[in-house]
Simulated assay, not measured.
Amino acid sequence: MSFLPSGSGALVFIAFEGQDADASEAASSLAKDLVEVWQLNDSQILDTDGFYEFRFSEPEILRDEEGTASIAWPGIAVHRGRLGELPITVIHGHEPGLKWREFLSLILGQIGRDDSVVLLGGLHAEVPHTRPLPVVANTEDRTLAAEIGIDANGYEGPIGILGLLAVACRWRSLRAINLWVGVPDYLADSPSPKAELALAKAVEHYAGVEIDIHVLEEESRAWELGADELVSLNPQLAELVRALEEAIDSADLPEASGDAIAAEFERYLRKRGREK
């Protein structure tokens, strides 16, 4: 069963760039590609002054063809349009560093009461690049979990902005699901089209929409070949990958890799909380 909104509600996608929610840029890249492929042309930039500490969310200098400089400040963009008759909203930008309560109110103000929300995230985990990358799907809404066949989130501990949004959506009786893709932690510095593709396929499965990004298939194969070459040059890394492959392949249940990434996610969040 799909997760599509009823009536006039929109399907809303939310992703943030940053260390806590966007491993290998899988979530933010998908959000940007959705805006392009679905031609969501009704766009606005939210007023997010005061939510960023620029030592950690640095502005960027950009130049046009003539070399003239401009500054791109961290912030949040909202894009709206339609996929056939279905209203679509994509919210993406930098995760906030300050005033999270106010930031939550700002984001929730962009979501209607009849909307369905998909929170997109990426996590570096102990998974091999040579196997399908696992995606964890869960929700704070137990009724919705049973309805669409995903887990009800039972995690307790430190939480990031996506987790806060998930809980806030539940408090407001908004239908919301979380989709997190696991990305090999030994390729932490590499954007991963394979992870973006896995996330896109999860969106298609759970949200019941089609995403026509054919180039991701080709880019994913190229990424995997590049990773193969990198691993082949490092015997210790090659041994690590073999061990991860054996752990995945020896699991009898297809959900085993998903369980592993869910456990890794909880371990990461707890570690992050201790370090603060």
Rank of each mutant, 00 (worst) to 15 (best):
G50S: 09
V37H: 09
Q39T: 12
S116K: 04
K99S: 12
D42Q: 15
D47C: 04
S57G: 01
L34W: 02
V90L: 13
T68S: 07
W73T: 05
V35T: 05
D22E: 13
D33Q: 14
L104C: 05
W38I: 03
E65T: 10
A69L: 10
N41H: 09
G67V: 01
L104D: 04
A31M: 02
R101T: 09
E60V: 00
V117W: 01
R55C: 04
L98Y: 00
P87Q: 10
L62T: 07
E85S: 13
A72S: 12
W73H: 00
S70I: 03
A21P: 05
V35L: 06
I45N: 01
A26F: 05
S57W: 01
D33Y: 04
E36P: 00
A77C: 09
L46G: 00
Q44H: 08
E66W: 07
E95P: 05
I76N: 04
G122N: 12
E102T: 09
R113K: 14
E65L: 14
T68E: 10
F103Y: 14
A72E: 08
S28H: 10
D114H: 09
L104Q: 09
I91T: 01
H92V: 12
I76D: 00
E58A: 11
R55K: 15
I88G: 09
L123S: 06
T89V: 15
D20S: 12
L62D: 04
S70R: 06
Q110D: 09
L106N: 08
K32M: 13
R101N: 07
H79Y: 05
A21G: 10
H92Y: 07
F51W: 03
P87M: 12
E102M: 11
G84D: 13
G93E: 04
S43Q: 15
A21D: 10
E25A: 12
G67L: 00
L108D: 03
H92A: 10
A77F: 06
L106M: 11
A77Y: 07
W100G: 06
E102D: 15
H94C: 14
L30V: 03
F103G: 08
G50E: 14
H94Y: 05
R101G: 04
I91E: 02
S57R: 13
E25H: 08
E85I: 12
A26S: 15
F54H: 13
T68N: 12
S43E: 12
D114M: 09
P74R: 01
W38H: 10
V117C: 05
E65S: 11
A77T: 13
L86C: 03
D114K: 14
E65I: 13
V117Q: 05
T89H: 00
L34Q: 04
W100P: 06
S28W: 04
L104H: 02
Q44K: 15
D49W: 06
L83K: 14
D42S: 13
A69Q: 07
D49L: 11
W100S: 10
Q44E: 14
T48I: 02
G97E: 13
I88N: 10
L46I: 07
E95S: 04
I91N: 02
S28R: 02
A23V: 15
L108R: 06
D115H: 03
I107A: 03
H79L: 05
I71F: 02
G50M: 12
D33A: 11
E60P: 00
